[in-house]
Design a protein around this nucleic acid. Sequence first.
RNA 1: GGCCCGUUCGUCUAGGGGUUAGGACGUUAGAUUUUCAUUCUAGAAACAGGGGUUCGAUUCCCCUACGGGCUACCA
Length: 506
Amino acid sequence: MSDKKVRVRFAPSPTGGLHLGGVRTVLFNYLFAKKHGGDFVLRIEDTDQSRYVKGAEEYILECLEWCGLIPDESPVAGGRYAPYRQSERKAIYREYAERLVMQGHAYYAFDTPEELERNRHEIPNFQYGHAYRDTLRNSLTLTQHQVDQLLDAGEPHVIRIKMPENEHIHFNDMIRGNVSFETGQSDDKVLLKADGMPTYHLAVVIDDYLMKITHAFRGEEWLPSAPVHLLLWEYLGWKADMPQWAHLPLILKPDGHGKLSKRDGARLGFPVYAMSWFDERTGELTPGFRELGFLPEAFLNLLAMLGWNDGTDSEIFTLGELVEKFSIERVNKAGAKFDFEKAKWFNSEWIRKSEARSLKPEVIKVLAGKGIVVTDDDFLLKVIDLVKERCILLPDFFHQLSYFFEQPKEYDLASVKPKWTDAKTEFFISFIGILAKTEDISAAGLEQAFKALAEEKAIKAGELMLPFRIMLVGGKFGPHVFDIAVLLGKAETIERIEKALETFKS
RNA sequence: GGCCCGUUCGUCUAGGGGUUAGGACGUUAGAUUUUCAUUCUAGAAACAGGGGUUCGAUUCCCCUACGGGCUACCA
C-alpha cells in the first residue's frame, strides 16, 4: 500500500431505492477506509438526467445514516473536493474530453441515436469500434473543416474514446488478482454525451483523480469496462495516481439465477432495499429492511458475511469489530445467493444481544403503530428483556408484548373449554383469594402457591397452567406464566382471571 | 454470439498437496421448557466432470461443462 492517505468513495446514481448490493459496497468501502484511517466520500453520480429521481439522494443519505455509515465528505457535509454532485461538476469534464480529442485518443461523433440503433439492428454484432468507426460520421472520417463547421453550427455530437485495436491491457484487482483484456473487444464508449454531461466512464476517472481516491470498490458488473477506465487514466497522464481496483462479487437471486433485483423481493417475499422506497411515478411502495423490522447492526452484519469472513467461525460482529477485522484479501470472488432465512437469524441474534434500553425506541414505535402508548419506561424495559429472545423481527414485539398493555380481546377457547370443569372454576376463585392476600408476589412464590392449591383441590397443575396462561395473554405463547403474572401485578392478574372465568364458564 | 469473471453440503462459507473436508442458516430425530419460541444432543447433507503435474490431488495447471456479468449518448 502506498503512503498516501486512503480515500474511498461510494458513488451511487440517484435513480431509486438503495439495493442490498449497494449497501454492501458502501460497507466494504467504509470498513476499508476506517481500517486504514482513511476518508469515506459520498459522490452522487447524477449524470443521467433522464433517470434522475427526485428524493433519491436524500433517501441514500438517510440509508447511510440509518446504517451508521456516515461519509466524511458528501454533498451535504461538503469537503475540500466539493462539489460532490456530478451534475454540479459538469463544466469540469468537457475540458478533459477535448484534451483527449486533441491527443488523438478520442474523437467527435455526429451519428444520431437513431442511426446507431438502425446499425445495431441491421449489422450483426455491430459495435461502434475499430471495425466500423471508419464508416460512420465522426472526426475520424470527416475533414477537419467539416468537423469545425458542424461544431460551429451546434450540431449535436458526442465524444468517444478511440479504443486501440490490438492492445493487451491488464491490471491487478485487489479481489481477483490479475485480470486482462484485449482492447479491441470494447467499443468506443461515449465519454461526453450530446447534452454535455459526461458518461460514467469519463466522470468516474476524472472525479476519482480530482478527489484523490486511492482505492475504488464497485460491483463486478463493472469489470468489463475497466479497460476503458484504465486507458483513460493512462491517456490523461494520471496513471501513477490510479486507485487500486476492487470488483466485489454480486449478490444473486436465492432461487433461479442472476443478480438480485427489486422484482425478486416482491416475488419471493423479502426486501431488497435497505429502506422502503416509494416511487411517485408508479405509486409503488417497495419495502425495505428497516421497515420490516431489521436492526441496522444486524443488516450490516449479514451484509458483511455475504462475501467476507474473518477466517474463524464467528459470524456476529459489531461495526467496530468489522472495521478492526476487515481485510480485502478475505473477500470472496464468487457471487453469493441471498438467503432471507439466514438474514432473519442475524436479526434475532442481534435483538437478543441488544440491551433493552437500546431496543426501547424501536419497540415503542412498533407498539405505537398498533395504538399502544407506553407510559411506564421501566416496565417496558422489563418486559422487553422478558420477551426479546422470542422475537426475530422488531414487529414481533407487538405480538409478544401487547398483552402486557391491554387485556386479551380474545381467548384461545378451543384449548380450554372442552376440558373446563366447575372444579377448575373453584380453583381459580380460591387462587384469587390467595393472590389478594399475598403481600409482594414473586414468580417462584406464586408458582409454589399455585401448585399447592392444585394439590389441595386434587387437580393436576398441568391442567391449570394452560388455562391460566390463556387468561393472562389470550393464547398459547409467551414467557413463563408466573413471570407474566408478576409483571402484570396482583390487581391486574386478578382482574384478568375474573374476566376470563366469565367466558370460560359459559 | 463475443469478451470477462466465477464453481466446497439446499444456502452462506472454512480449509488447502496427505483432514473422519470444519462451522453457520435451513432441515430431520430426540431431550428440556406443564404454552410457544428458546436451549441442548444427535443425524442427513458438499470438493462440477475429464485430463495432466505429483509417491499422493478437493487443493496446482489445462480443457470441458455449468453459472454469472458486460456487450446504451444507464449507471
